[in-house]
């Protein structure tokens, strides 16, 4: 019995030490990346941050710093990708939005929403939360109305009903606007072909950093489009990267 307890303690100690070492190394790598960035060694900083990300660690700070490192290395596509990922996590982060706006300016893209509330509301996650909130309020007030007869409940039902309709429309609009997952072109000047293969003619060319919508994938070729410009075509999957970071299991 005592031997079993000893063995259990030993196992627990090894496990906890392992967890501690893992956690420390991730933080250390992040700090090393920061130090390299501060000293102008942007390539090394980028490698350190990427290593942290490979260990399935994320967060606004890591994504934002990766965006900065790529920006300093002159890779606008990757810089935008990581800023977009950071903005997905923290749509209200002012630094992220500033740097993302700067990259968009360099790509000659218009930034439409500047107020943090608008950015959050018009993001897919924001619209979903907003819908859920209004959904709860609307049905709650209906529920109260089943038992309580008051004038304010009568008015509240109308107001919440209108808000519910607006939230549903907003969610529909944001969903339709995206129509698929978003991706960023990470290589300079990518040719978008009319079909999934090199035998097909190049239909249009997109610069590095351009945001595209992904619709479909066949044999390593991805169907992408730019709904604003009415363009659609196929590109090799390695030339673009989805904004939503892949979840490693």
């Amino acid at each position: 019995m005592r031997k079993t307890i000893k063995a259990a303690f030993l196992c627990a100690a090894i496990l906890l030490t392992g967890l501690y070492v893992r956690g420390a190394s991730v933080q250390e790598l992040f700090d090393q990346g920061n130090a390299a960035y501060e000293q102008g060694r942007f390539s090394e900083a980028q490698q350190r941050y990427e290593e942290v990300n490979r260990q399935n660690r994320g967060g606004t700070a890591l994504y934002y710093n990766l965006g900065n490192a790529y920006y300093r290395l002159g890779r606008l596509g990757k810089a935008r990708l990581w800023y977009e990922r950071a903005a997905l996590l923290s749509p209200g982060d002012e630094d992220v939005q500033y740097n993302l706006g700067l990259v968009k300016n360099q790509l000659q893209e218009k930034t439409t929403l500047s107020a943090p509330f608008g950015r959050i509301l018009f993001s897919l996650g924001g619209a979903r939360w907003f819908f859920l909130m209004v959904n709860c309020l609307f049905f709650s007030i209906l529920l109260v109305g089943l038992t309580v007869e008051r004038e304010w409940i009568w008015w509240g039902r109308w107001v919440m009903g209108f808000l519910f309709l607006m939230a549903a429309l907003l969610l529909g609009f944001v969903n339709a606007r995206q129509g698929g997952t978003e991706a960023v072109v990470i290589e300079p000047r990518v040719e978008i072909r009319t079909g999934p293969g090199t035998d097909y003619k190049a239909g249009f060319v997109v610069p590095e950093g351009q945001k595209l919508i992904v619709f479909d994938e066949i044999n390593g070729w991805v169907q992408v489009g730019s709904p604003d410009k009415g363009l659609k075509g196929w590109v090799r999957s390695g030339l673009i990267e989805p904004i939503e970071p892949p979840v490693r299991r």
Binding site: F30, G59, Y98
Partner: peptide
């Protein structure tokens, strides 16, 4: 005009599917 400086502090949390995209949500 230049990009803003890196964030030296940050929460390095495990990457998960955003809650708004889960079946529970």
């Amino acid at each position: 005009q230049d990009i803003r400086f890196i964030k030296t502090r940050g929460d390095l949390r495990p990457v998960r599917t955003p809650f708004t995209q889960t079946a529970l949500f």
